[in-house]
Design a protein around this nucleic acid. Structure first.
Lengths: 209, 209
DNA sequence: CCCGCGTTTGAACCGCCAGTCAACCTGATC
DNA sequence: GATCAGGTTGACTGGCGGTTCAAACGCGGG
């Protein structure tokens, strides 16, 4: 029925390649990522990668944003299912600590943030994407705060939710970097404690110990 | 008099090269830094770079730590001259905001942090160095706090100075990343305001407006 | 003046890798 | 089964850039 019946690809090559690229970047780092590696990862020839993306750079940017996108969506969906705002906040914090939950590849996701940042330094398109991605994460914090205030769970006399989210989000970034880089002092557990503590102080709720 | 009189080098090549390398990394980014660029920058042949450093990697790590070292020492010296702890704190905050003070190349220094972090992800030596460098910065925050408490300028009933410094330092990192990457919402001025505000709240002093 | 050693050069080497291309495959359509 | 188009291959290339090396340089001591 479609004007351009393109029945062939059962498998979405574009998608497959982006996912493979994200994995390779995670494993080896952006600097050490070769087209060949990505091709190998999804059992395909190097030529095909270029056939779909034209250049390595275009693929890399898409892979970085895609991976981050997925993480965000996953968390977003999970939080929405939780009825209590405090529950959401606690979970959000858990999910922010690299390496705290073994079942999640949070180390990987944070590592990709670092790559995004460095690339954004000199690639305007990446810089724009980075801002969009970041904005969403901070917003999901302020949404939880607003939600809690709406339901009466959190006190409403504290500072502006957006300001709190910005401040809290920045601290999470800073702490996560240290944890990610295997700091001997800043362990996942310690970061978790600090985050809970600061969240309670800023938002004024009694989170899970 | 020296056992091995090595009178020749008026100019310390090692030093020159490290400095040139740091500049090139700042300009072009670690990924785009070529030995040739560094050689050009200090008017020397590429071969000489390898003669002094053996490999590109060794030079890069040294350049990254060296540049950070210099920034730290410069700030450290400056702060020590100031009599009032509140003055020190205000200055420390000023110096932490990328692009706030036009006369300082703070953008560059923060950009180098990003490169250090990415490299530290996979280079154990860099990871170790990073932790040392980071520790110093955080310590200089807590030193200011302790100094202020000693002189009675800051109240002593607040939280542990090291904890405050860690929390504050992490937030500064997170905010600086955004500012550095030209975030449209997080401007240098806004970061400055937030930092002053949070510092007052955490330390309990009345910093310069 | 000449020797010797640390320094410096720059050409040559070499492996690597993004990107190109011509050929091939496959499934759809007629 | 012939034709066609999009998908796929993998060999090839062109340049790049880290590293090597033999030769040159220049200064201090003999």
């Amino acid at each position: 029925m479609s004007t351009k019946a393109r029945a062939k690809p059962q498998r979405d090559r574009h998608q497959e390649i982006v996912e493979a690229a994200a994995q390779v970047i995670t494993d080896r780092g952006l600097a050490e990522t070769r087209i060949q590696d990505i091709a190998d990862r999804c059992g395909v020839s190097p030529g095909l990668i270029l056939y779909y993306f034209g250049s390595k750079d275009r693929l890399l940017v898409e892979a970085l944003t895609y991976a981050n996108d997925q993480s965000y969506l996953r968390m977003s969906r999970e939080l929405r299912k939780m009825p209590a705002a405090s529950e959401r906040m606690d979970r959000l914090i858990q999910l922010s600590v690299p390496g705290l939950l073994p079942e999640y590849a949070l180390l990987d996701e944070w590592a990709l943030w670092l790559e995004i940042w460095v690339r954004a330094l000199r690639d305007p398109q990446m810089a724009k994407e980075r801002e969009n991605l970041d904005r969403r994460w901070v917003q999901s914090i302020s949404e939880v705060i607003r939600y809690g205030r709406q339901t009466g769970e959190f006190p409403s006399d504290a500072a502006d939710a957006d300001d709190i989210a910005m401040e809290f989000g920045a601290m999470v970034d800073g702490l996560a970097i240290q944890v990610l880089l295997n700091d001997t002092v800043m362990t996942p557990a310690r970061m978790h404690d600090i985050c809970l503590d600061v969240a309670r102080r800023l938002i004024g709720y009694d989170g899970a110990g």
